[in-house]
Design a protein around this nucleic acid. Structure first.
Length: 221
DNA sequence: GCGACAG
DNA sequence: ATCTTGTCGC
């Protein structure tokens, strides 16, 4: 239950070691309690490259109506390295989510959860740090094998990493490229897929992620 | 050595 | 991530 606080000022080697150390702390389990709100968080980068702008948006779970928005701006303290994305975006994401007026029952992060080389993607890191249920929503595959799901909305296929089902390739809109859904922390894959689909009635990406993306981009210009 | 590689 | 409107395809 205790927070996993650690320094973000680490080398790529130390970052990998931290992932291996923290991965066992991730809990894949059913959500406790009712889901009344869902938040989404995403980052954007300023033109002059050097600062990262992150936005968090809190929505009412059923209606998907916006309850609140929050932003955070930080200097990029880590380069983009596949597999180490959280060391670049998590600090800003955590700050933005922390600024929301109330705690979300579920948080959706732009990136992978346990469908990661070391089972510790951005969604796991943020979820573990804040100790809240998180879902990883990625536009592309990072690791593992999968087959393309059928063309209609709701179709899905397994994403297998190291012989384990680590995620779901989910078609959120008929005829549109599927997204990669995975559990981040304190949620099951089945629940993650359910909420991802529930939030994707109007577009490929779930509404919390879409709105956070728009908000972050807006604060960049 | 050659590909693959979240944002 | 980001450069970027209209346009080609189903």
């Amino acid at each position: 239950m205790r927070s996993i606080e650690h320094s973000w000022n680490v080398s790529p080697e130390e970052a990998e070691a931290l992932q291996i150390k923290l991965a066992p702390k991730v809990r894949i389990e059913p959500i406790k309690g009712a889901v009344r709100s869902i938040a989404g968080v995403d980052c954007a980068y300023s033109d002059d490259d050097g600062t990262i702008i992150c936005a968090a948006v809190l929505l009412e779970a059923e209606s998907l109506k916006v309850i609140a928005t929050a932003c955070a701006e930080k200097d990029c303290g880590f380069p983009y390295i596949p597999g180490l994305l959280s060391f670049r975006e998590a600090p800003a994401a955590i700050e933005a989510v922390s600024k929301l007026p109330e705690k979300a029952d579920i948080l959706m992060c732009e990136g992978h959860g346990i469908s990661h080389p070391r089972g510790f993607g951005l969604a796991c890191h943020v979820g573990l740090w804040l100790e809240i249920p998180t879902i990883g929503i990625a536009k592309n595959r990072l690791c593992g094998d999968c087959l393309p799901p059928d063309k209609h909305r709701g179709s899905r296929s397994k994403l297998i990493c190291n012989g384990r089902i680590a995620g779901t390739v989910l078609r959120t809109q008929t005829g549109v490229k599927p997204i990669f859904v995975s559990a981040g922390h304190r949620i099951t894959l089945k629940e993650a897929v359910h909420w991802a689909l529930h939030c994707s009635c109007e577009a490929r990406m779930p509404q919390p992620i879409r709105l956070a993306h728009q908000e972050a981009s807006k604060h960049c210009k």
